[in-house]
Amino acid sequence: MRSIVIMTGLLVAATTFAQTKSDDTSVAADPATVRYEALQKKVDDAFKAWRQGQIDASKKAREAAGKGGMIPAMSMVPPYGKFVPDYQEAAKEFAGKDGAIPFLLWISQYGSSDASAVKQATGTLMSDHIASEKLTGLARALPRLSRSLGAETVTGMFDTLVAKSPHASVRGWATLGKFGPTLEDPNVGLTSAKYTAAKATLVKASSASKDDELMGLVRGLIADREKLGNGQVAPDIAGVDLDGVKFKLSDYEGKIVMLDFWGDW
């Protein structure tokens, strides 16, 4: 039952993200924005129908399996792929103009079922729109695009964004994409020159971006590694149990502890 929490969370996050994107592009009612919002509505409707279908199918499978029975795996991939040609057509209509950017970003983020479409969209963003601040969207999406584009291409794009973007926010997100994995890599020691250099570069780039979300992520990454990474002594917890009785995590020193962050919802 608890494994469903992550799945539901992902679905809610996907919807929220789609809605956020729609809000982001509703600054002015120019033809590209109108077109984007109309397309986005189609996608949102398809997503809602898909999600409801998943919930209904899951309920039926649960009933059919009975108590303790096996429930077949459900698809976790929303039906975004079929909309890629619509976004490509719109991007073509506004080619060379800022209006094309949201369509190209959408393909980059949601078109993973069509690797050549992702390749083309990211390539166009890099060649035609490198000076746009909206490329923060691309810099944020790139870490998930290694499978479609190849790790080397993604690394090259991070380098190009850092070197050529006039916007500190784009450079900051690209720097996170490039150096974040170094901070997370348990094989890179905390006292190594590689870790120290990656951390300094990231802190500098995120501070320069003045982007609260990026700065928070970088702070979290560093805390994860330096406070809670493998081999680090975990912070103590002094709290109360479900009956209100005080106790501490350090009461259990001398034992192997499985600390389980859980909830029943």
Binding site: I6, L228, G231, V233, I256, L259
Partner: peptide, 14 residues
Amino acid sequence: GWPTIVVLDEERKV
């Protein structure tokens, strides 16, 4: 994300 599990050794090391 929930659930998250942390395994600690006898010295509270992660």
